[in-house]
Design a protein around this nucleic acid. Structure first.
Length: 921
RNA sequence: ACCCCGGUGGCGGAACUGGUAGACGCGUUGGACUUAAAAUCCAAUUUGCCGAAAGGCGAGUACGGGUUCAACUCCCGUCUGGGGUACCA
């Protein structure tokens, strides 16, 4: 009886399906555990071996937790809305709904091949109206809410209206526009239109105007990555900034809570760092400087008020409002030219530019403390959107300011004495201030506070906390996304009642951009006019991250028609205990879904405000490309070792026709017509390819399809090999060759039970101590390593165990059966098969995880490494319970040790019980 | 430029709180079984030197320092690869 993996795997996959082995109940006496994968966008290319890495890891952990007695939720679904499907429709005329369905079916087939334990009854698709009904519903919750800064949480906007009626907005300044101020009488005097406009500036999902990448030739709005060097990626048409009406999420109100929450969740430091950098909280001050000979003022934002005496010039953004007003007549032309130049440049160019540019406005402001005249410049390195769009430049302390000053020959004031060397700026906070008026003699670190106090005291500025993060744009002028449950009446957005949900995405035969930057839905006048509350429907759709911001909740209660998720159910499942996915979603998806969770929590819909308790980032699997070398101008190919003797062109060759590094010459000739008469220059009769590690992708011909691997070696081998490659978090190259080792391991395991010649070899004899020891060593390590997600070392633990048992010729059921349970999360099919062959009638999926018993590992002696002055010289067998004195005696009397002590007296003997002994002389 | 993560044999990697560096696997070499192949098994495999061998001596975890009885592990500096962010004041 041999190991027929393909037969075994098909058989058990069928049985597990028929017996609903992976069905999960929302009620259980067992403790819960929620394992979630970042769900995939079902692309047309299908899965390559890099994709399932995280899925396998989570599957192993889910199965492990189940064996440990947990009720485990481990669902899967599809992030099914998105741009590629829409683009595919435009290019090939196939409707996104159709291509998405096809792609999902293909993904599902590939996933099933690998033997995952997903409860497919809980599958979700974000593009399914039954799902996006609730995406729209949550959007409405956000629309009907505002963020109360006093309580630091989302509250119903109806409450805010009551407050306005009672006391105006004095105690709740408007986050959308600080200049909006009114009392209860003025509020009562506003008409509905005005009131709705004001409320819009408070809502958590709101409509405003934002700049987008507008491509006139394509008649559409482009995403940042669709714009390359200021032109569209497709077609190369010009792209300009255009202000369009857009929906936003007021995520900035949550900035502090998003920061605070990071302290309560287990994300990697790198991930937390990325999120807090993105949020970009900084403490500083806004300071106003009076213009010379004018009543107007220039307000700047700075984090270093201590350097105020070192200000040598001001820089304002080219978009700054004051420019027209302050520019002197003789500088007018220069300023206009500069602004025209800046406008001609795309945002990307502006950001990438390292060269210094700018223009003087002719205006001066006065330093409030010493009255010094400070010139005001314009430069593109200051951004309009951050702070006040104006900075005070301190060239001795800031590198960019320094370079600017040097470039335009602006004199530099040194306020930090010897810390400034005239060659480069020094951003230190440790210098003692000089040339700094009332701050002289203070250490900068302390001067910050002193300066702030003074600035506030004389009323020229206030402390200010700034965030880099912006409100999140939430609308797309696209077709393949969730429609908004919104209708417009005379320029005012009205929400549709909940009873109208879902607003189903209408069918479009041909997807084309609408007019005036509107989305394709605007081409359906009948649909636009079909609003149940009158007016016109919103023609934009929601972005990709809408559906993914809350999907972890829907898996808990996927068929609920009355709620996005029953509160009792979300209370039972709680947070996602383990979330596995790639780093590429570090700031997008993870921040948005954290915000949605907080809002849902604030509004009482769920009982926790962080969605993911622990996040593990899986690394990427790189492709190992194979290269061949064509002798230039010929159809002759030279093996890598000889290529330097010729002038060659390097070509990628499909990795599937290369065995290791050796090219299958016949397969190569067959692969393309142009290679039919290829000839080769060989070394040792072989054509050896070059290799290079690159991203796995079609263009490099290095894609390895998991289907092929599973067909050749089986799912169990594939699963274990993906884990064996290295730590899950780490990037690593794929090497198909190495899979043999794991496959051999499974065959070796099989032979402990059945022999090709002898048939059954397993028996029911009583194990020896040595055999128990091998088993329990494996139990201990497999459990510890799985718990800390060290799946690669668990696999080697299994190998060591099987090697040891084979050496001991142990075929005993008492040993082999618990081993199968340990192995189940990693190789479920072969474990289940052998489990049944041992005579079990229930499924191994619900077996009990073996308990480690230390007694089998207890030893009385250890072969201690003994060093002299830190160098290991010999090993001595010493009793484990030996005391320091005994050990000293034994060790010092040892011949080898005496030799290395060279007759010198020992200073001390370091004895670490169970570890080592070191003699210091 | 800043931040984060890494750098260990021919290769993927192991060494968890400092305690015998290189587990496990791939590859390579030699051997057994076989008519042959596949499969399987055995042995060797960081490196230099001495030795017929058993074995011994020395070096070694990117590089240079340091702390320690003891450093892949901790500290300082440098180089280098990858990722993130970006004229963010």
């Amino acid at each position: 009886m041999e190991y027929k993996f393909s037969h075994i795997e098909k058989k058990w996959q069928k049985i597990w399906k028929e017996t609903n082995a992976y069905k999960v109940s929302n009620t259980s006496d067992r403790p819960k555990y929620y394992v979630l994968d970042m769900f995939p966008y079902p692309s047309g290319a299908g899965l390559h071996v890099g994709h399932p890495l995280g899925y396998i890891a989570s599957d192993i952990f889910a199965r492990y937790k189940r064996l440990k007695g947990f009720n485990v939720l481990h669902p899967m679904g599809y992030d099914a809305f998105g741009l590629p499907a829409e683009q595919y429709a435009i290019d090939h005329g196939i409707h996104p709904a159709v291509s998405t369905e096809d792609n999902i079916n293909n993904f599902r087939r590939q996933l099933d091949n690998i033997g995952f334990c997903y409860d497919w009854d809980r599958e979700i698709r974000t593009s399914d109206p039954y799902y996006y009904k609730w995406t729209q519903w949550i959007f409405l919750q956000l629309f009907h809410s505002w963020f109360n800064r006093k309580t630091q949480k989302a509250e119903p906007i109806a409450e805010l209206v009551k407050l306005f009626e009672k006391e105006g907005n004095a105690s709740h300044p408007c986050p959308g526009d600080l200049s909006i101020r009114f009392n209860e009488q003025t509020w009562a005097g506003f008409d509905e239109h005005q009131q709705m406009e004001i409320l819009m500036d408070y809502r958590l999902s709101f409509c405003g105007y934002g700049e987008v990448n507008w491509c006139e030739a394509l008649g559409t709005v482009l995403a940042n990555d669709e714009v390359v060097n200021g032109v569209s990626e497709r077609g190369g048409f010009p792209v300009v900034k255009k202000k369009l009406r857009q929906w936003y999420l007021r995520i900035t109100e949550y900035a502090d809570r998003l920061l605070e929450g990071l302290e309560r969740i287990e994300f990697s430091d790198a991930m937390k760092e990325m999120q807090s950098n993105w949020i970009g909280k900084s403490y500083g001050a806004e300071i106003s400087f009076a213009f010379k000979g004018s009543t107007s003022q220039l307000t700047v934002y700075t984090t270093r008020p201590d350097t105020i005496f070192g200000v040598d010039f001001m820089v304002i953004a080219p978009e700054h409002d004051l420019i027209d007003q302050i520019t002197t007549p003789d500088q007018k032309q220069a300023v206009e030219d500069y602004i025209a130049y800046v406008k001609s440049r795309s945002e990307r160019e502006r950001m990438a530019e390292k060269k210094i540019s700018g223009v003087f406005t002719g205006a001066y402001v006065l330093n409030p403390f010493d009255g010094r005249e400070i010139p005001v410049w314009i430069s593109e390195y200051v951004l309009a959107g951050y702070g006040t769009g104006a900075i005070m430049a301190v060239p001795c302390g800031d590198e960019r300011d320094f370079k600017f000053a040097k470039h335009f020959n602006i004199p530099i004031t040194n306020i930090i004495g010897s810390h400034y060397n005239g060659e480069e700026a020094n951003p230190t906070k440790d210098a003692i201030l000089e040339n700094s008026g009332f701050l002289n003699g203070l250490v900068m670190r302390d001067a910050i506070e002193a300066a702030l106090k003074k600035i506030e005291e004389i009323g020229i500025g206030t402390r200010k906390v700034n965030y880099k993060m912006r409100d999140a744009a939430f609308s797309r002028q696209r077709y393949w996304g969730e429609p908004f449950p919104i209708a417009w009446k005379e320029g005012v957005a009205y929400p549709l009642p909940e009873s109208e949900l879902p607003v189903v995405l209408p069918h479009i035969d041909e997807i084309k951009p609408g007019r005036e930057g509107e989305g394709p839905l605007s081409n359906l006048p009948e649909w636009i006019k079909s609003s149940p509350i009158g007016g016109e429907r919103e023609s934009s759709t929601m972005p990709g991250y809408a559906g993914s911001s809350w999907y972890f909740l829907r898996y808990m209660d996927p068929h609920n028609d009355n709620a996005f998720c029953d509160r009792k159910v979300s209370d039972y499942w709680g947070q996602v205990d383990l979330y596995i996915g790639g780093t590429e979603h570090a700031v997008g998806h993870l921040l948005y879904s954290r915000m949605w969770t907080k809002a849902l929590y604030d509004l009482g819909h769920i009982g926790y405000d962080e969605p993911y308790k622990k996040l593990v980032n899986q690394g990427k699997i790189g492709g190992d490309s194979r290269l061949i070398y064509r002798v230039r101008g010929t159809n002759q190919y030279v093996s890598v070792g000889l290529k330097d003797q010729y002038e060659t062109d390097e070509l990628h060759v499909d990795v599937t026709i290369v065995d290791g590094l050796e090219l299958d010459q016949e397969a190569f000739k067959r692969s393309r017509a142009e290679y039919n008469n290829a000839t080769f220059i060989l070394e040792d009769g072989k054509y050896i390819c070059g290799s290079r590690l690159e991203k796995m992708g079609k263009r490099y011909f290095n894609v390895v399809n998991p289907d092929d691997i599973v067909a050749k070696y089986g799912a169990d081998t594939f699963r274990m090999y993906e884990m064996f490659l290295g730590p899950v978090e780490q990037d690593k190259p794929w090497d198909t060759k190495g899979i043999e080792g794991v496959h051999r391991f499974l065959k070796k395991l099989w032979r402990l039970f059945y022999d090709e010649v002898k048939g059954q070899v397993w028996n029911t004899e009583a194990p020896t101590d040595a055999e128990w020891k091998v088993l329990h060593k494996a139990i201990k390590r497999a459990e510890e390593d799985t718990e800390r997600f060290s799946f690669n070392t668990t696999v080697s633990t299994f190998m060591i165990c099987v090697n040891d048992l084979a050496d001991l010729k142990c075929n005993k059921k008492d040993i082999l059966q618990p081993l199968l349970v340990l192995l189940t999360p990693y190789a479920p099919h072969v474990s289940e098969e052998l489990w049944h062959l041992l005579g079990n009638t229930t499924s191994i999926l619900d077996a009990e995880y073996p308990t480690f018993e230390p007694k089998y590992l207890v030893e009385s002696n250890k072969e201690y490494p003994v060093s002299v002055n830190g160098k290991v010289r010999t090993t001595i067998n010493i009793a484990l319970d030996a005391a320091q004195d005994d050990v000293e005696k034994i060790v010092l009397s040892n011949d080898v040790i005496q030799k290395w002590m060279e007759g010198k007296p020992h200073k001390k003997v370091v004895y670490v019980k169970g570890r080592m002994v070191n003699v210091v002389v």
